[in-house]
Nucleic acid binder design. Sequence first.
DNA 1: TCTACAATGATAGTTATACTATCTTTTTTT
DNA 2: AAAAAAAGATAGTATAACTATCATTGTAGA
Lengths: 225, 225
Amino acid sequence: MSIGIKFTLNEHLFLRDPQDSKLGKKIIKESIVLIDEIGFEAFTFKKLAKQMQSTEASVYRYFENKHVLLIYLVSWYWEWMSYLIDFNTMNIEDHERGLKIVIRTIVDASRENPAIDYVNETILHRIVISEGSKAYHTKHVDEENKHGIFKTYKDLIQKVANIILKVQPNFKYPRSLASNLFEMANNHIFFAQHLPRLTDIEVQEDNYTEVSEMMEYFTFRLLAN
Amino acid sequence: MSIGIKFTLNEHLFLRDPQDSKLGKKIIKESIVLIDEIGFEAFTFKKLAKQMQSTEASVYRYFENKHVLLIYLVSWYWEWMSYLIDFNTMNIEDHERGLKIVIRTIVDASRENPAIDYVNETILHRIVISEGSKAYHTKHVDEENKHGIFKTYKDLIQKVANIILKVQPNFKYPRSLASNLFEMANNHIFFAQHLPRLTDIEVQEDNYTEVSEMMEYFTFRLLAN
DNA sequence: TCTACAATGATAGTTATACTATCTTTTTTT
DNA sequence: AAAAAAAGATAGTATAACTATCATTGTAGA
């Protein structure tokens, strides 16, 4: 049932392209499930291999280590988000309406119809919320950044920044606002679920309406004339 | 040269209070230096013990594991921030001016005169920027939260939320804005230093003026009538 | 269809991490 | 000076994070 999407991810993110083989796709699929289940710290390649009935050595043939695998997953998510934004804003003439759609896409990504059979986007969204920032909070950011590892995210931010500029060409902080939108969406869902006193919004189950309302309010207040 | 401050931190954060002994203070002091130097992932109690000429077992008598130590350090930072905000806004009648001072305090915390001899606040600020969010991004958040581990942070957010409400009593999202101010300050300093395309501001050395300018702009746009 | 070769599996081994336990020595308290 | 608490020294265990080697299976081209 694949609709034939294959994302192009930076080649430093893997040793062998997991999108090219059955085992590779299984690694992606099962790692998403396992990281969500036990958390990134407790996650190991040995446990993953056991769960997918393969071996540790086989997993290491695809990914250098679990940190790179996390960046891969998060990058995959960002590529997917980028695709969704393009898709959802296609043929929208009104820039304000376009930006609102972007915000709702960011917040409600997991409600979109799954696009690829070996990736559970709903679970991946949870991982991005709770583990995503660990992808770049390391001592090796600069080095990894030099390899273009974060290009996907930077392009995504630029895409949203451009939409922001269409709404308000004089706005001084388009990229800051764009990155803040992503961080804010993830943080406040996390806060509402785990540390509710750090936010004013509430979420139940997978209804994130209050998050996107808040973000729309913030955004259009900032961009108003 | 201590001015006699001793912060009260949740008792679940340590096995023996590090503030009560020479060795405990040394653990705090040296762990800050070492985490900053090699990053939290590479940091181990064994390396710490070696650096401070003590033993692994001794460190384990104070902290259950390195994750709890990180929460301890970050909580210490939040306590200190709370103290600074009170101190810097004391006797300020004008609420708007008060909020501006809060923003500058959050951003420029590390420029404040060091208050306690065994904590290098400048280095600790760097740790909070690059490792701080790992304190609560774990599978055990809920459990740790039940123990009141994050009370310090929640109280700090509430304090800033109250100041926000004084500026604009009708504002719908005081706590969200407060937590966003802290997250934003740290993120954009980090971005400017490591992933500059994710922000519009620039920082050089320890001059974070552009960060506080941006945050003031965002905040007062949101709170304007 | 056979051959070559790439991919995977099975197994073992290495070094480091994350602890726990026990005993001795030093320091502090009374 | 004795008792108790803290710290040091040392050793040990389980698991993590890899690397290496060889056997087996699957597949693409001659």
